[in-house]
C-alpha cells in the first residue's frame, strides 16, 4: 500500500478528482446532443450544461418558510458525498491514494449517504411531491443497491480485492479472458446505472411537473446555487457510473504509473470510452419508453438476477473445483 501513498500520488488524486467535476457536465451535454440529433433536432450545444450551472450559481436561492436547516445543508452534503465517491474510481491512472481510502463498498456507502440526504431534503419542506419523490427514490435505491453490490462482488471475488485499483490491476495483468460472470455483472451494472442515475426507462431526466417524476420531485423546492449543486452532483454520478463501467469492465488503456504519456493516453482512451457509452445511453433513451413505476421493481429484479447469476457462474464455471 505504501508504494502509492506518495506526494505525486496525492497530487494526481486531487487533479483526477477535479477532473471529475470538470468533465461531468460535458458528458451530460454530450448525451443530450446525441439524443437530440437522433430525434432529428439540433439540440443545445454540448457546453450548455456548463452555462446552466453557471447561471444557477449566480442566481439567488429561494428557500421555503417551512424549510429546516437541513434543507440548506443537504446540497453541500449530497455534492460532497457524490464527489468523494467519484474520487475513488480510477479515471486516468490506477494506484492512487484515494482508492486506498475508500474501497468499492465505501463508494456504495457514500452514494447511499448522498441518496439519503437527497430524500430527506425532498421531505423537508413538507410538500406532497417531495414525499412522493423521496419514497420512490428510496424504493428504487433499496432494490438497486444490492444488485450493484452483487455485481461488484462478482468482480472482487475474481480479483480477491475490493480495492478498485487492485481489481483493475488484476484484470490488466490477467489479459483478455472471456468470463461469463463479467458478462452478467456488466449487464446488472448497466441496469443499476440506468436506475440510479434516473434515466429512461426508470425515470425521465427531462421531466418536470409530472406525477411520474422521481429525482425531479425531490428537487422541486430548490433554486439557485442549491439547485446547481444538486444538478452537478447528479451529473457527477452519471460520470461516476460511466467511468466505473468503462474502466472496470474494459480497463484497457488506463494509465499505470505517473508519466505524462500514461496520463495523456489514459485521458484520451477514457474520453473515447465515455463518449461511446454516452452515445449508447442516448440511443437507449431514444428507443425506449419510460416504464410505469411499479414495473421498476421487475427491472431491478432483473438486475439483481443478472448480478446473482454472475456470482454463481463465477463459482460454478470459473473456479477450479
Amino acid at each position: 500500500m505504501d508504494h502509492y501513498l506518495t506526494l505525486p500520488g496525492w497530487g494526481l488524486a486531487v487533479f483526477q478528482s477535479l477532473l471529475y467535476i470538470a468533465l461531468a457536465p460535458l458528458l451530460v451535454g454530450w448525451v443530450r446532443k446525441v439524443k437530440a440529433r437522433l430525434q432529428n433536432r439540433h439540440g443545445a450545444p454540448v457546453l450548455q450544461a456548463y452555462r446552466d450551472l453557471y447561471k444557477l450559481l449566480a442566481k439567488e436561492a429561494r428557500v421555503a418558510h417551512t424549510a429546516s436547516p437541513l434543507f440548506r445543508a443537504a446540497p453541500y452534503i449530497v455534492f460532497t458525498a457524490t464527489w468523494m465517491a467519484a474520487a475513488t474510481v480510477p479515471l486516468l491512472v490506477v494506484d492512487l491514494p484515494t482508492a486506498a481510502i475508500a474501497d468499492i463498498i465505501v463508494l456504495v456507502g457514500l452514494l447511499a449517504l448522498a441518496r439519503v440526504f437527497l430524500a430527506l431534503a425532498g421531505m423537508d419542506v413538507g410538500t406532497a411531491f417531495g414525499g412522493m419523490g423521496a419514497s420512490r427514490e428510496m424504493m428504487i435505491g433499496a432494490l438497486a443497491e444490492p444488485a450493484m453490490l452483487m455485481a461488484v462482488f462478482t468482480l472482487t471475488m475474481t480479483a480477491h480485492s475490493t480495492n478498485l485499483s487492485s481489481v483493475i490491476d488484476h484484470h490488466l495483468a490477467e489479459g483478455f479472458i472471456l468470463r461469463p460472470s463479467y458478462l452478467f455483472a456488466l449487464g446488472g451494472m448497466v441496469l443499476v446505472a440506468i436506475a440510479e442515475t434516473g434515466r429512461i426507462p426508470v425515470d425521465n431526466p427531462t421531466t418536470h411537473l409530472e406525477l411520474t417524476m422521481i429525482h425531479e420531485a425531490m428537487l422541486l423546492e430548490y433554486s439557485g446555487r442549491h439547485l446547481a449543486l444538486m444538478e452537478w452532483a447528479a451529473q457527477v454520478k452519471l460520470l461516476l457510473y460511466g467511468t466505473l463501467i468503462a474502466n472496470v469492465f474494459l480497463p484497457w488503456g488506463i494509465g499505470r504509473g505517473m508519466s505524462a504519456a500514461a496520463l495523456g493516453v489514459g485521458l484520451a482512451v477514457v474520453l473515447a470510452k465515455l463518449a461511446a457509452l454516452g452515445a449508447g445511453l442516448a440511443v437507449g433513451e431514444t428507443v425506449l419508453a419510460k416504464m410505469r413505476l411499479f414495473r421498476a421493481p421487475a427491472f431491478l429484479n432483473l438486475a439483481l438476477l443478472l448480478s446473482l447469476l454472475g456470482l454463481l457462474s463465477h463459482v460454478i464455471l470459473e473456479v477450479g473445483a
Binding site: 429561494r62 421555503a64 418558510h65 414525499g131 422541486l220
Partner: peptide
C-alpha cells in the same frame, strides 16, 4: 437567500395534511 412560500409546482400553499 430569500425566504418564501413553498413552490410545490405552483399549486395552493401546501398544508400539513397534504404531506406524505
Amino acid at each position: 437567500v430569500r425566504r418564501g412560500d413553498a413552490w410545490d409546482c405552483g399549486f395552493a400553499p401546501p398544508s400539513q395534511r397534504m404531506q406524505y
